[in-house]
C-alpha cells in the first residue's frame, strides 16, 4: 500500500486558481499539468491530501435570513 501523504510531492506553489489568459501555454519538459482551461475527465481526479486532516475543524459562516418564510404544504 502506498503511503499517500508522503507520495504527494506537489510543489507548494501549486496554482489552484488557473488563469489561461496570463501566459502562452505550450507543451514543454516542465509541464506536468494540463492546460489551465482544459476540461475533461482527467480533471475529475480526487487529489491526495498533502497532510493529515483528521484533527482539523472547519466553520462555515452563512448569512441566511432568519425569517425566511416557509412554504406551506
Amino acid at each position: 500500500m502506498t503511503d499517500v501523504a508522503s507520495s504527494s510531492t506537489s510543489p507548494n506553489s501549486f496554482e489552484v486558481e488557473t488563469d489561461a489568459s496570463r501566459r502562452y501555454w505550450h507543451n514543454s519538459s516542465h509541464n506536468t499539468l494540463p492546460p489551465p482551461d482544459m476540461m475533461g475527465a482527467y480533471m475529475r481526479n480526487r487529489p491526495v491530501p498533502k497532510g493529515p486532516v483528521e484533527a482539523r475543524k472547519a466553520w462555515i459562516s452563512a448569512a441566511a435570513s432568519r425569517d425566511w418564510p416557509r412554504l406551506s404544504t
Binding site: 500500500m1 499517500v4 506537489s10 480526487r46
Partner: peptide, 17 residues
C-alpha cells in the same frame, strides 16, 4: 491507494509530480 482513490487518482499522483 486507500479506498476511495481511483486509477485516475493514481495516474495523476504519479504524473503530476
Amino acid at each position: 491507494l486507500p479506498e476511495g482513490y481511483s486509477v485516475l487518482d493514481e495516474y495523476r499522483l504519479v504524473n503530476d509530480n
